[in-house]
Amino acid sequence: MRLINLKPTRSWRLSLAMLPFALLIVAYLFGSAARLADNPQDKLLPSPVQMADAIKRMAVDEDTRSGKVLLWVDTAASLKRLAMGLAIAALLGLSLGLAAGIVPLFGASLSPLLTIVSMVPPLAILPVLFIVFGLEELSKVMLIVIGITPVIARDIEQRAREIPAELLIKAQTLGANTWTLILRVVLPQLLPRLLIALQLALGSAWLFLIAAEAIASTDGLGYRIFLVRRYLAMDVILPYVAWITLLAWLMDYGLKRLTRLAFPWYEGSRA
C-alpha cells in the first residue's frame, strides 16, 4: 500500500498521538538526569522531584510573605484579564466586522481602516497604552483588545461577505428591514464563526497577556514567570508554562464544544 492510503485505526491513532509527547518527556528526563549527575546544583533542567517540590511550593503552600497560594492568585488574575479582553474584543470585533461586511455604506469606511489598523504591531504601542491607561488592569486588558479585535473583525467581515446574497434577498421578501435582517439572519449565522475566530485568536491573546504582565504587573502567570527568571528558577517556570498550555488547550476545547452544542445546524450546513 502507498503511504497516503494507510490510515491509523482508533487505538493506533491514540498511540501515535501520545508518541511525540512521550519522546519529548523521555528526552527531557535523560537530559535532566545527565546534567544533574554532572552538577547537582544545575538549575537549567530540573528533575521531576525538584519540579514537584516547586509545584507544591506554588500551588499548595501559602506564600510566607503574602499568606496566599501564589499559583491560584496568579491564575485568577490572568484569567480575569484574559476573559475581559476576549469578551470586549469579541463584542467589538463582531459589531465592526458585521457592519463592514453587511452594510456597504459602513464597509466603505470601515474596511480600509480595519485593514490598516490590523497591521499596527500591538506590542509596539504597548508604551502608549501604559501612558494613556496607566499601569493598572485597564492597559493590560486594552492590549489584548487592541491586539485581537482587528483580526476578529476582519474574519467576521469576510464571513459576512460569504453569506449568499440570495439569503439576504430572501429575508427581505419575508418582510425584514435592515435591523431585523441583521438580527435574525446574519447574526445567528456569524455567531459560530465568532467562536471559531475567538479560538484562533486565543494564542495571540495569551501572548499579549503574558507580555503585558511581564512588563508591568504585581501578579499573574506572566508576571511570575518573569519574576522567577531572575533566579533561573526553571523548576517554577516549566510547570507554569505547562499550566498555561493546559489552560489554553482547555479554552480551545471548550470553545469547540460550545460551537457544536450551541449551533447544531452549523456543521451540516457547510457540507
Binding site: 449568499p164 440570495e166 439569503l167 434577498i169 430572501k170 429575508a171 427581505q172 421578501t173 419575508l174 418582510g175 439572519v185 445567528p188 449565522q189 449551533f263 445546524w265 452549523y266 451540516g268 450546513s269
Partner: peptide, 16 residues
C-alpha cells in the same frame, strides 16, 4: 419586499 416571493435554485432557505 413582501409583495414578491422568490425561490432560487440554491441558497434559498436559512440554514440556522
Amino acid at each position: 419586499d413582501r409583495s414578491r416571493g422568490i425561490v432560487f435554485q440554491r441558497y434559498t432557505v436559512l440554514p440556522h
